[in-house]
Write a protein that binds this DNA or RNA. Structure first.
Lengths: 343, 343
DNA sequence: TGAGGAAAAGAAAACGTTTACATAATAGGC
DNA sequence: GCCTATTATGTAAACGTTTTCTTTTCCTCA
């Protein structure tokens, strides 16, 4: 628990350069009132002693850090990590770094991470929330600039930006692809409906169905909450197999459930597009190398991360920026797992 | 740049509870010398004011933080991120969090990240080094406990652990699979030979070839430095196409180059195993869903991350632990892209 | 040459904790 | 009830910076 040795401090640099610590501080933060001669002297001493500033001490004084919090349901989800990677690129240029946290959509875990981050005085937060800690987040938001990822916070008090996708419309569009091909019995593997993105995607599906004359009510047989997880997607297909009537198409509403769906189809020998057609919200890793490729709505996660990174930096600079929304447009990539329904 | 408001401090809690700050500090760190009565009183005040400790101030005093640095070439590489995820799970239980950094194998970027982390007084570092900043790392290592990932540091001064794979033997083994099937003209897409893992994998290949009577010298025609990148893997195949003589098998030595190889094969209509057989070090995402599946040496990255997380915690607790090595055993997964050579 | 002002440098307080040390309160033993 | 040993609490210094306020040094110009 104890650091091995003792690092060299400003005091020592000051002594070595025969100036006061204030002067050393000034050359480090290159403020203007320091003569060229002493600046060089100090720089030389810093070099000689290989001085490294203590960010902790600095942070205590200036009351902010160089760290951005990045809190998502699962950092190992390629969707999230590729956003994170882009964020990193943006903020690294400003000498920021990034603490990443996976909540697993668990209320307690999210809360404890948020508290930890807040106690660590992070400069800003990029958050894909579980939706279960709105009260705390609103409180935290009074101190920490925030950018939301995909999931909104239901409160007028929230101040910050949102980077996300057009859940409703994109979902509508994907559903329509199937509908236009004649599919009507569409099995939807949706996500948690408490989450704004889960709900909106589901609603997009419902609306499209409605517009084509299908009513998706409580008794609609072809739906399953896949929880946006791999396991959930797998279970959805297991469930589907046992239905008295088979759907002709499957619409999985996020990348993880899509992978689950694909694995289950493989395991149970369900072929696409012969047995079912497949469409999916989000793309999956190595899609172009896969044997069975659903038609997907692919988002440019790099661009999303870039925007999120830029947004949080701007918001740190100016915390009272008006709320903004950055909505990404998907690219529809047609796969080989979708076919016209032949009756 | 300025935090919105002012958070509540220990002073205020002390005032509210009508005790000294020392007492508040004591109940927070629940040291023993505090009566049940005042403990309750303080706890109540903390609750009432929703007090959150200031980790920065604490860190300044106790000279350590709750943060682990995780520095790898590319955090969005599924291999790394899934290790990171496991590390996170381990350390989160101890109320640590993790700052992740991608060096892109760039010397300067790695150096600036390491300096930043050191100035931030991280408690420990998990490092997949570029191999280009050994001097600084050795210096840093005097202050910060370290666990290396896959790539060694060439210095007797280094104190820390290594979590890695048995590069030489595993590479040998994969090569031998091809050799036993009759392949002799094996195209090896290796990594940077300055890196310990790059070199050892290459050497494993060379040794296996030698043991089967093939000499892989400077003039061996079937090799290409794919730099452990996707692009590199792709270029390797482009290069291979233009060789006067075609190899009968390809051995790509990390996951990124394997993806590059697979994409290139697809683009150039090179079929496996008809045209070439494919083996690979590391597995790739969604392998089981892919049309062309190389035979791979798959590592349990979760277990590796678990070990790395555990190791760093132990080392933080006790910095003068002897150096340790945790070498993971691969699972060979036979794919459909490997075939016996028919002359 | 000397006064005045600008520029450079220093002294010291502050950021919010922890902790060694000092003091006050309590309990136990007679 | 008094003394002592113990436990509980308080005081103040320290962690390594930044920054305000002073003081010193250096010019410029009459």
């Amino acid at each position: 628990m104890k650091i091995h040795g003792d690092r060299v401090t400003m005091q020592e640099v000051a002594k070595d350069a025969n100036v006061s610590v204030a002067t050393v501080s000034r050359v480090i933060n290159n403020s203007y009132n320091v003569s060229e001669k002493t600046r060089e002297k100090v720089l030389k001493s810093m070099e000689k002693l290989s001085y490294l500033p203590n960010s902790i001490a600095r942070s205590l004084k200036v009351r902010t850090t160089n760290t951005i919090g990045f809190v998502v349901s699962d950092i190992s989800n390629t969707y999230h990590i590729s956003i994170a990677r882009a964020v990193e690129d943006v903020i690294a240029k400003h000498n920021f770094n990034m603490t990443v946290c996976s909540t697993g959509n668990d209320k307690e875990r999210e809360l404890s991470y948020l508290k930890l981050l807040m106690s660590q005085n992070i400069a800003g937060l990029i958050l894909n929330t579980t939706g279960k800690n709105d009260d705390f987040i609103i409180e935290m938001n009074k101190y920490i600039p925030m950018v939301l990822l995909n999931r909104k916070i239901n409160s007028p008090e929230f101040v910050g930006d949102l980077v996300g996708t057009d859940n409703f419309n994109c979902s509508y569009q994907l559903t329509e692809i199937l509908l236009k091909m004649g599919h009507r019995k569409i099995f939807v593997v949706h996500g948690p409906l408490e989450l704004s993105n889960g709900l909106e995607r589901f609603q997009g599906f419902v609306q499209a169905m409605k517009d084509y004359g299908m009513d998706v009510g409580d008794d609609y047989p072809f739906k399953f909450n896949g929880e946006f997880t791999l396991n959930g997607g797998y279970k959805a297909i297991e469930y589907m197999r046992n239905l008295p009537e088979r759907p002709t198409a499957v619409f999985s509403q996020n990348n993880m459930s899509t992978i689950g769906v694909l694995r289950a189809c493989k395991d149970f020998n369900i072929n696409a597009p012969e047995d079912v057609s497949l469409v999916a919200y989000d793309t999956v890793d190595n899609l172009n190398l896969m044997a069975t490729r659903p038609t997907v709505a692919s988002y440019n996660t790099q661009s999303m991360g870039y925007k999120a990174g830029k947004a949080i930096l701007e918001r740190i600079e100016n915390p009272k920026l008006p709320n903004r929304e950055f909505i990404e447009i998907p690219e529809i990539i047609t796969g080989n797992a979708v076919g016209v329904l032949v009756k």
